[in-house]
């Protein structure tokens, strides 16, 4: 009997078997290593690509508001939709809260919809926040973080303006610094979709 190769490994990922360099073991190891690299690669691409870009189609989402309504993004086609992500624990969000409400008052009769998405927050504090800043446009929690994941949002506050065609028209990362800045961005989107 020839010398039995004793190199075989008990490790599940490494090539097992009794004969030297078993073929299926080699295949298995390659599948494992390349699979691992693929997972890491895709993970890396995901972590690097950031939020969705202007021109991308916004996926269909449903926002359940604090008032108990269900707002389907698909039903808003044909209107400009301003989606603002915020949270009650987010200090910078407070900078833009009042201005957003003012902008809503300016545009609510001009076919512009404002939606507030409350990112991982607690209801009590969220309602207090809405009351404190007198926000009247529809707001709702981001249940299961599905909406923020769809926008691949990175943090709060962030604001996404969706054009009437259902594609992303403008993005603002971080708080708006003034009412003018909001107005400018909406006007630009309106002009583009005239």
């Amino acid at each position: 009997m020839e010398i039995i190769d004793n190199s075989t490994t008990e490790n599940n990922e490494e090539s097992p078997g009794k004969t030297p360099r078993p073929k299926w073991g080699v295949v298995l190891v390659w599948v494992f290593v390349l699979g691992l690299l693929a997972v890491l690669g895709i993970g890396l691409v995901r972590s690097q690509r950031g939020s969705i870009r202007v021109g991308d189609r916004v996926p269909n989402l449903v926002l359940s508001t604090f008032d108990g309504d269900e707002i389907d993004f698909a039903d808003l086609r044909g209107q400009i939709v301003v989606v603002n992500f915020w949270a009650s624990w987010c200090k910078p969000c407070e900078q833009e809260a009042v201005e957003l409400e003012q902008a809503y008052q300016l545009y609510k009769d001009q076919g512009v919809v404002f939606l507030g998405v409350d990112y991982v927050d607690t209801e009590t504090e969220a309602r207090a926040y809405l009351a404190k800043f007198g926000i009247t446009y529809p707001n709702g929690p981001d249940l299961g973080t599905r909406i923020s994941q769809a926008f691949r949002m990175l943090g709060v506050p962030e604001t996404y303006i969706i054009g009437p065609d259902g594609r992303l028209a403008a993005v603002k990362i971080g708080p708006y610094l003034s009412l003018d800045e909001i107005v400018n961005q909406i006007e630009t989107v309106m002009a583009e979709h005239k």
Partner: peptide
């Protein structure tokens, strides 16, 4: 964090 305080309150 403050956010976590709120969750514990919840």
């Amino acid at each position: 964090t403050q956010a976590c305080e709120q969750w514990r309150a919840t």
